[in-house]
């Protein structure tokens, strides 16, 4: 019995059907007498380079325990899954029960982008106010110019 960590990158088009995939994959693992200690749904992430013309991927991490011979069978089946872009099985000494750093990073990034989205309409309204201000200032400047011209005219007249 060996401890494994399975990393699976799903096709982003299938990310709405993640729950179905996870249950399917877990049943496949259980059929091959694997025990699952932890599943982590990290979610969509930007890939640092495109794989099969995909720029985003849905990351999943499974902490599993089982036999090496059975793992080959699983890998042979997984090869032909269209929903999987890339997969990797790693041997690990121990499974950590804490949330992984990757999960924390992705969550914090997502929260940041969400808060930014909330801020955008506010900033837009501010910008529009600024535009009004600048517009009114421009008008003032124009008025000043005209008044200057007028004063000059009057000077010339005098």
């Amino acid at each position: 019995m060996t401890n494994y960590e399975a990393v699976i990158i799903l096709n982003p088009n299938f990310s709405s059907k993640v729950d179905i995939f996870i249950s399917d994959f877990e049943s496949l693992l259980k059929q091959n007498s694997f025990s699952i200690t932890k599943t982590e749904d990290i979610g969509r992430r930007q890939l640092s380079f495109s794989i099969n013309n995909h720029n985003k991927g849905h990351y999943l991490i499974f902490n599993i325990k089982g036999d090496a011979t059975k793992l080959i069978d699983i890998e042979n089946k997984i090869k032909y899954y269209e929903s999987i872009i890339r997969h990797l099985f790693l041997v690990v000494k121990e499974h950590s029960l804490e949330k992984s750093q990757l999960f924390i990073d992705t969550q914090s990034k997502r929260n940041e982008s969400k808060s930014n989205e909330e801020k955008i309409p506010e900033s837009k309204s501010k910008e529009s106010n600024d535009d009004k201000k600048t517009a009114s200032e421009d008008e003032n400047i124009e008025k000043k110019d005209s008044s200057d011209l007028e004063s000059e005219n009057t000077k010339e007249d005098s």
């Binding site: 990393v7 990158i9 992430r45 890939l47 640092s48 380079f49 495109s50 794989i51 991927g57 990351y59 890339r86 990797l88 790693l90 990757l102």
Partner: peptide
């Protein structure tokens, strides 16, 4: 090298 394979880190800055 693992992170590169999983597209978490780029291999190079020349990726299309």
């Amino acid at each position: 090298k693992i992170a590169r394979f999983l597209a978490l880190i780029p291999y190079t800055d020349m990726h299309k």
